[in-house]
Design a binder for these strands. Structure first.
Lengths: 190, 190
DNA sequence: CTCGAAACTGACCATTTGGTCAGTAAGGTC
DNA sequence: GACCTTACTGACCAAATGGTCAGTTTCGAG
């Protein structure tokens, strides 16, 4: 892993664990086994560092949302596939997810966080398009943020007792049954 | 309102809006229209200030959880009442709630945040007691954190288009139907 | 080997911030 | 009026932090 990649990885890990404000460039430098000046050499500003670190996750999310917007969530099949993809995305990019949901107040300072917020809005819009019921939309918001938060708390705070694949499977089931109105076969949630 | 109370209120508002780390004692002093030294006079440390500011919300939560633990959630009636009380609590103390859920990394530094985390665990334990199904427990975690997050985002980010009482009513309905397995009468969600 | 660009570093700096301190204003009691 | 406690303030300080800079090392191309 290049130094650059080490810095980005350390940024994700440290900021997820301690919060952005509490993570200094020196901390990141130590974790990356290089000098603080070198961190600044690769990423001129802390804000830029955060942007770069979050970009891969944002791109992946953008892809998922765009694809779902284009294809639609008409059939039960599509809904289930979407739910699984979404949960898988959140699991895969849990560090970035954690950073995003715990830093709503930095959206103005860090463009990547603003982008993430816009993506969430598009996601909400997408799913709520399939229901005119205000209550359904609210339900969507609750479940998506809930899954995100649960997942992130479980993995970061290491409360998790389940293997990752199983957690993904169960959360997929929860999303499917609660939001999209189409339950998976029973054994899929086990 | 006494200066002391003004300081506590300003602390809640500013820390919810900008985050704890980004809220300086000077900011709080300005909002309270007194000197920074006076803030420190009333609350020796920033940590202590936050503890005091969060205490009322924690006490209210403690009361709700204890009472539910003692009384149980056996009947459908009890479940619905509990759901409504919980949502009302979150709405009433939304500033404190927002601070708590956006600062998981400060649990070690600020005792009040640690207490809040313990209370959440008791809450999860309480509800999951009424189900042996792992999926149900997960569902609870998702819905509670989801309601909390949704509520907080809506009020803080001012996305809310609904009056507060209506939002409370709808969220109560969501919690009841999703977690506790007992839906309210249909018109209660309107 | 030479040279130039990129990677990297230690020393340094300006700013911010939590917190201290010595002293002042206000009000209640004797 | 003398005295004490509580509320309050401006000036000050040490530590931490983001970022600059001048200079050194590394290394591949010619």
């Amino acid at each position: 892993m290049s130094v650059r990649e080490q810095i980005l990885q350390a940024t994700l890990e440290l900021c997820a664990k301690r919060g952005i404000a509490a993570t200094s460039l020196q901390d990141i430098a130590d974790a990356s086994e290089c000098s603080k000046a070198n961190v600044v050499y690769h990423f001129a500003h802390k804000e830029e560092l955060l942007n770069e670190a979050l970009t891969p996750s944002l791109k992946a999310t953008e892809t998922l949302v765009s694809s779902a917007e284009a294809q639609g969530l008409g059939s039960a099949e599509e809904k289930v596939v979407f739910a699984r993809n979404l949960v898988t995305l959140l699991v895969t990019h849990r560090l970035a997810t954690h950073i995003v949901i715990t830093h709503p107040f930095l959206v103005d300072a860090i463009p990547a966080l603003h982008k993430a917020q816009v993506l969430m809005a598009r996601l909400a819009d997408l799913v709520s398009r399939y229901s005119t019921d205000e209550l359904d939309r609210l339900r969507f918001g609750v479940v998506i943020s809930g899954v995100t938060y649960t997942l992130v708390s479980a993995t970061i705070l290491e409360i998790q007792s389940l293997p990752e694949t199983e957690l993904t499977e169960m959360l997929t089931h929860v999303v499917s049954s609660m939001v999209l109105g189409s339950a998976l076969p029973a054994e899929a949630g086990r």
